[in-house]
């Protein structure tokens, strides 16, 4: 059952456009994803090695549908839908659909990690003076600006921080989206033997380090897949070329290229 496809992450257009406001200072920004899927992704191909595309089609006519033939609907009762457009969703919350208004500032380190969901970059669109000011201020104070805003039919809680002159927005789960140990049904706390706690504490101290090497965070599964590909490439068999056909639109977009381009254009 196709639901709304969240697979629009790797796109050259911003996910959201609007302003961040900080007191009476408004800063025009474009929001782009800062997470990407696995670096090594496989394409789906036809039997002759030609790249495939995912398409929506009508069950009634069997024909493929273009974006303008598709609407969004909410299932109000079985198989009965109410149509709703992006514009309606925005106009239900006009201010917060266009503006991320920073309401409070908290110690960036103090936010429990369980709340963090997705990472985004907020890149300047337009003059960058106010942008630089906010980024510099956030970096100096080590604070995160907290706000809620509306994007694509959902309200988000965000923490805005700065990193190397760039503003980031981390979306967070609302408190009622995170279960408590009681909700999960974990057993009641027991008092552990102090000696056991002490011995675990010394184990922890002995195996502590100050920093995590980035190599420990590498994706081994993807690296293994890439090795397999390289090995097969050397044999020169198993290689198909889809050349000759009509030029298809490249679907693999390097999000880094998109971000760098957007930064340059704001100059």
């Amino acid at each position: 059952m196709p639901e709304e496809n969240e697979d629009q992450r790797e796109s050259s257009r911003p996910f959201w456009s609007g302003t961040i406001s900080f007191g009476l200072v408004s800063i025009p920004v474009n929001l782009f994803p800062a997470n990407r899927g696995s670096q090594v992704s496989l394409r789906m191909l036809g039997p002759n090695g030609k790249p495939l595309a995912r398409k929506y089609y009508s069950e009634k006519t069997g024909r493929d549908l273009d974006a303008e033939d598709i609407i969004r609907g909410f299932e109000i009762s079985k198989d009965r839908f109410v149509e709703i457009s992006d514009e309606e969703l925005e106009r239900l919350e006009p201010e917060r659909s266009r503006d991320i208004s920073l309401q409070s500032f908290v110690d960036a380190q103090s936010i429990p990690r369980i709340y963090f969901e997705h990472g985004y970059f907020l890149l300047p669109s337009g003059s960058s003076r106010a942008y630089h000011l906010l980024a510099e201020t956030m970096e100096r104070t080590g604070k995160a600006g907290i706000a809620t805003f509306v994007m694509r039919g959902k309200a988000y809680l965000v923490a805005i921080t700065a990193d190397n002159g760039i503003l980031r927005a981390e979306t967070m789960r609302f408190h009622d989206e995170v279960r408590s140990p009681q909700d999960v049904g974990l057993p009641r706390k027991q008092n552990p033997a102090p000696a056991k706690v002490k011995s675990l504490e010394s184990y922890i101290t002995q195996h502590s380090r100050a920093k995590l090497p980035l190599t420990a965070m590498r994706d081994k599964d993807s690296a293994n897949l890439l090795k397999l590909v390289k090995r097969k490439q050397k044999t020169r068999k198993n290689i198909v070329s889809a050349g000759g056909g009509k030029k298809h639109k490249a679907e693999v977009i390097d999000i880094l290229d998109v971000l760098r381009k957007s930064l340059k254009e704001s100059a």
Partner: peptide, 17 residues
Amino acid sequence: HFHLLEKKTHKRVKQHM
């Protein structure tokens, strides 16, 4: 949760490759 629907029929769209 929103569903993608065909504009003309208000029926859920199907997907294929």
